[in-house]
Design a protein around this nucleic acid. Structure first.
Lengths: 168, 168
DNA sequence: ATTTATTTTCAATAAGTTTTGAAAATTCAA
DNA sequence: TTGAATTTTCAAAACTTATTGAAAATAAAT
């Protein structure tokens, strides 16, 4: 297989993959393109390689930046802005985990905590099932939360870092 | 807070949560409703409680069944079919992990393996970056795959089960 | 065998999301 | 400043996905 063909396949399937994870196709494709580009590239490069409009590139690169996965870089003597992606997959993964935890898991756990405080007869099986379910999810979510914190901190902590090295 | 109010909030936010995970809102809402229902309920109950059409309930319950999260139950003397959800959150989570692994991770790893075999000069930085990126993702994905297998098997294995009990 | 209850299907439609592209804003250089 | 290059914005259009509802299929009861 030639590089150009492999590239196209990688970008396309990374895009499809993204849609199963709440990420829009184009954003994932831009990310894929940046991951396999050795040097920083411009808006126009992205437009050309993915056949998408300027506005689309602009919105999605901003979103990737807000996720901490992509950076703007200034090339001396160049007027235009260039983009580059973090290439260390471990860092990419922890960054995504960190953001999703903050955006989704933490607020959900907060809500579940509130929902557990309903008033009602604990002998009513409807009340009991509700409290049990919500409690169960909150407990499970709390454990997941702690586990993810460990993973996120691994990079910043020598001991955990060496412990988890074999995963890299 | 009253039960009815808490129920509505739980269903609505579980639905919103689902959309961030590639699950459609209604499917997640039906799942939420079943999770907090102590007894099996009918299509009509779901239609009424969530204000959705019969066809919609039908499609989404089938989908939940195909994910192994919901079961049809036959109530003696009843003509209609009833639905009930697995209530053990640990089982729900491992079931979801199992399915997503099968549907998404495994095929992705297969593809990445193929993409690594491109022909081209390894000294070309474009080729090098491509191979490094794809290789890195594949390696990471492979580790995640193994880790998930451990989690999934925990329920079927006494030793791992007791090891992971504290997470439950 | 016929009626009645219930479930399933799927074309049409509605709702939601993404993309475009051109105008406005910004940035830099002369 | 002014003008050219570049980036940003956002309303409208295109596209994608979810939902409806009524007809067809199936299953149970008489």
């Amino acid at each position: 297989m030639k590089l150009s063909e492999a590239k196209a396949q990688f970008i396309s399937s990374w895009g499809a993959f993204g849609t199963h994870w709440g990420i829009n196709r184009t954003m994932a494709q831009i990310h894929a393109l940046l991951l396999i580009s050795p040097d920083p590239i411009t808006q126009d490069d992205i437009m050309e390689q993915l056949n998408i409009s300027r506005g689309n590139v602009n919105m999605n690169t901003r979103e990737l930046i807000s996720w901490g996965l992509v950076e703007r870089v200034l090339i001396p003597g160049e007027r235009r802005e260039f983009f580059t992606a973090e290439k260390d997959i471990w860092k990419v993964a922890t960054q995504i985990i960190k953001e999703r935890k903050k955006r989704e898991l933490d607020p959900m756990l907060k809500l579940l905590g509130q929902l557990e405080q309903i008033d009602g007869d604990k002998k009513d099986k409807n009340v009991k099932q509700f409290v049990d379910t919500v409690g169960g999810i909150r407990k499970f979510g709390g454990q997941a939360d702690k586990m993810l914190d460990v993973m996120i901190k691994a990079d910043e902590n020598w001991f955990l870092g060496s412990l988890l090295k074999f995963f890299k």
